[in-house]
Simulated assay, not measured.
Amino acid sequence: MYVALCGGQQRDFEWDSRTQGLVHSAFFYGFTASQAPGGWLAGRVGGSKLFGLAIGGASLLSLMTPSVARAGVRPLLATRALEGLAAGVAHPSLDALWPLWAPPLERGRLVSFAVAGYGAGMVAALLPSGYVAARFGWPWVFYLSGSLGLLWSVLWWLCARSRPGLCGGISPEELAYITESLGHSRGAPQVVAYPWCSIATSAPVWAGVAAIFVGSWNYYTLAAQLPTYMRDVLCFDLGRAGALAAVPYMAVVLVVPAAGRGADWLLIRGLGITQASIHLSLCI
């Protein structure tokens, strides 16, 4: 997306640096605003359904982006913000699935494998997007990514389920293992009353928020600005800029699963249990 916007600004639009910043940041305003509501909705309608809808909605808006961009900056800003709203719902929707699917002693590996998918997605998008934009035009980056996202969301909707008990393809042995390890009944999940005041005044919670904020700022700043930096400062062509911008996310694909396995190793051996695994993950 960022390589495509970079190519569009270079070829078809005369955006100054302030406008470029607004176009990039509009997505994150929506992304931030929908995190908490997305978690609330996931707990009531099911993380699986909401995750598929979120990805499908973001993909549809991606398909619309080239046409909206030609209509003006304001419609583009609104579309990018809406796309951020949809993408922001996806994160807590996926998080809502882990307590229902992932056994405690395997959760680090499973969650880290999924998180590594974010980096793999960035690599898969950035590597070809510069060349696609240079060869066929920047709108085709949005057309291809949006079409693939819609196709994937349909497959997800058909195959994925919010709870193991609703999955027709799971074996009785695996279902028994998951439910027994989690201590869940096979019925509908119960509504939990959360101690919001205690959570809001917890120092460890705010420490985690700060760590995630710093990590997210670094992750998404690189995603948004690195292609432009490669093109404007280092003078690479658009194809090479996109490919080089993918390099940091290759490290994510390699490091994050290793961190998950390390966290599970600590849990299995009782070396510090949960606190040690959290500290290790945040440090990495």
Rank of each mutant, 00 (worst) to 15 (best):
Thr228Val: 10
Tyr194Lys: 10
Val252Trp: 04
Cys235Arg: 11
Val192His: 14
Ile199Phe: 12
Pro248Gly: 13
Ile268Asn: 09
Ala258Gln: 09
Cys197Lys: 11
Trp265Pro: 03
Ile212Gly: 05
Ala246Val: 07
Gly215His: 08
Ala251Asp: 00
Leu282Gly: 00
Val209Leu: 11
Ile278Asn: 10
Asp232Gln: 14
Met250Phe: 08
Thr274Asn: 10
Val255Ala: 08
Val256Ser: 04
Met230Phe: 12
Arg269Leu: 09
Thr228Cys: 05
Ala203Val: 13
Leu267Thr: 05
Gly239Cys: 01
Ala193Glu: 09
Asp237Trp: 02
Leu222Gln: 01
Gly262Glu: 08
Tyr220Phe: 15
Ala207Cys: 07
Ala210Phe: 12
Tyr194Asn: 02
Ile273Thr: 07
Gly260Gln: 01
Gln225Gly: 00
Arg240Lys: 13
Ser216Asn: 10
His279Leu: 14
Cys235Gly: 02
Pro227Ser: 07
Val209Phe: 14
Ile212Thr: 14
Phe236Tyr: 12
Trp265Asp: 09
Arg240Thr: 12
Val247Thr: 12
Ala258Met: 13
Val214His: 07
Ala224Leu: 10
Trp196Ser: 05
Ser277Lys: 09
Phe236Gln: 11
Phe213Gln: 06
Arg269His: 15
Arg231His: 13
Val214Arg: 01
Asp264Val: 04
Val253Thr: 07
Ala259Leu: 13
Val247Ser: 10
Arg261Glu: 02
Leu226Arg: 05
Gly270His: 09
Val205Gly: 10
Ala207Tyr: 04
Ser198Ala: 15
Leu234Asn: 00
Ala203His: 03
Gly262Arg: 11
Leu244Pro: 05
Trp206Ala: 11
Phe213Asn: 05
Trp265Ser: 15
Ala200Trp: 11
Met230Ile: 05
Gly262Trp: 07
Leu271Val: 10
Cys197Trp: 11
Pro189Asp: 05
Gly260Phe: 00
Ala246Arg: 07
Tyr220Gly: 01
Gly215Met: 07
Gly239Arg: 06
Tyr219Arg: 08
Trp196His: 04
Val247Tyr: 07
Val191Ser: 14
Gln225His: 12
Gly260Glu: 01
Val253Lys: 01
Leu271Gln: 15
Val256Leu: 08
Ala276Asp: 04
Leu226Asn: 03
Gly208Pro: 00
Leu280Ser: 08
Ile212Arg: 06
Val247Glu: 02
Gly262His: 07
